[in-house]
Design a protein around this nucleic acid. Sequence first.
DNA 1: CGGGCGTACTTTAAACCAGT
DNA 2: ACTGGTTTAAAGTACGCCCG
Length: 159
Amino acid sequence: MTTMHDPWALNLRRLRAFVAAVRHGGAAAAARAVHVSQPAVTQGIAALEAAIGADLFVRRPDGLTPTEAALVFLPRVEEALAAIRSPRITGTQARAFLALARAGAYAAAGTAAGVTAPSLHRAVADLEFAVGGKLVNRRGRGHELTARGRQLTRALSLA
DNA sequence: CGGGCGTACTTTAAACCAGT
DNA sequence: ACTGGTTTAAAGTACGCCCG
């Protein structure tokens, strides 16, 4: 992670953990809600706090109390997660697919997204597996989105 | 003593590079 | 464009400490 204002640094699992921690008032309860371990929630929240440069919770003996910053951040995160819908999709996959959708080719998309073309290829393949259908078709030198691919592009762009 | 958070170490997943 | 091998980052397990 080289840049600090990269929204994709706020990976989706961490954002879900954050929302759950606000709702349930603690790391242990949030962990049960999003099906990860309690340390993953603690560490994920710490990473989010580092990324945005502000504390999200006050640590107390009886749980986590959200700060003002957390309450401002919360509705924006909920909107983004609602737009994405599927719980299987990762931030990396979403980023790769959007780059490919815009650029139309793996090499150009890789340059735009700041990752290598092979990584993009794999991420998009994983995403197709996650949603259970084709998202792009090869077309000459470039690629063309399927109907499902265009639908997903709209949802991810909103997020 | 029990419930909850934080840390150290281990395991798993993702990304890169090189080659086909 | 795609695949295989290696490196790096993220998540899980186990355990310790703190407070009521």
